[in-house]
């Protein structure tokens, strides 16, 4: 009995190690490429670099425009502002809407929630043409604000559903007690519900941030000046269809772009399970 349990454990660990290894391999290869010299992707699965260089990082970070402006700094700033703006706006919009859906029974509630689900099904890539027209009418092409609006509205449906599911699990009695004590609904929302929903808010914020930080195709369409690009657009230019691919610079850029998002992801991941499943089970 003891023997077989140990065997089982060992097999489990072996399975997990192999699987994790396979999962990590592509990432390891990118890390390797980022620090090894040369532009081409190498034929190897050995993740340990034979020669270490920082040339790719220097190339990506030090990139300047034709008139000598520091591009990487500008683009990093764009990406950061857009992602933060989207997070703030997205979470605010989603939290208020989700609270309304969770706590109030009003005509149009089911229809509204259905609408929030249905819009997920319309292919976003094809909303691009009309969105482009609308943004240009509003004078928001090539601007940070325009992308913030677009990203937060694309992130809202998912966030609303998730937050609504979480709000549902917060007992109503708490709010009722506060109501009896004479607190206003808005005050209850800010001082009781939001603090209790922190895990779900964290996940929502993470999701909005990731949407904005990682998005490529809309950014590439709505931005046409190099200094207003976001990082994904920059990154794709290294291995884009024109000219020869520079995998070295791409890998270095990929590492730089991924680090903040991966770090954030891990910082918030313990909320992820509770936030997601609460939304999932009740949704």
């Amino acid at each position: 009995m003891q023997q077989s349990t140990k065997m089982n454990r060992a097999i489990t660990h072996l399975f997990l190690i192999i699987f994790t290894g396979m999962t990590l391999l592509p990432v390891a290869l990118v890390l390797r490429k980022a620090v090894s010299p040369g532009k081409a992707f190498e034929l190897t699965i050995n993740p340990i670099p034979s020669k270490v260089t920082s040339e790719h990082f220097r190339e990506v970070i030090g990139k300047t425009s034709s008139d000598g402006k520091w591009l990487f700094g500008r683009q990093l700033l764009n990406s950061t502002l857009i992602a933060l703006g989207t997070t703030l706006l997205g979470v605010f919009l989603a939290a208020t809407a989700a609270y309304a859906f969770s706590r109030f029974r009003f005509p149009g509630r089911n229809g509204g929630m259905m609408a929030f689900l249905v819009v997920q099904m319309f292919p976003a890539t094809l909303l691009m043409i009309p969105m482009y027209v609308i943004l240009s009418k509003l004078g928001l092409l090539n601007s940070i604000l325009g992308l913030i609006f677009v990203y937060s509205t694309t992130a809202i449906p998912f966030c609303v559903w998730m937050l609504k599911g979480y709000f549902d699990t917060i007992p109503k009695e708490l709010e009722e007690a506060a109501l009896i004590d004479g607190a206003s609904r808005i005050r209850i929302f800010y001082t009781i519900v939001l603090p209790l929903a922190r895990p779900a808010l964290a996940v929502t914020a993470l999701f909005s941030f990731m949407t904005a930080w990682n998005e490529y195709i809309l950014a590439a369409t709505f931005l046409n000046r190099e200094e207003s690009y976001t990082l994904p657009v920059l990154l794709n230019s290294y291995v884009g269809e024109h000219g020869s691919a520079n995998w070295g610079a791409f890998a270095a850029g990929a590492v730089l772009v991924s680090i903040p998002i991966v770090a954030l992801f891990y910082a918030l991941q313990k909320h992820l399970v509770s936030g997601l499943t609460a939304g999932g089970v009740k949704g």
Binding site: A100, A115, V119, T153
Partner: peptide, 30 residues
């Protein structure tokens, strides 16, 4: 119902407006 559920609708307005402008309108256009 608006009088009755004023708060609920008020809470929905910001998200609803954004969705209407940047999702619904392009959708209808499409």
């Amino acid at each position: 119902s608006m009088a009755e559920h004023r708060l609920a609708y008020t809470l929905l307005i910001p998200a609803g407006l954004g969705m209407a402008l940047l999702v619904l309108l392009p959708f209808v256009y499409g």
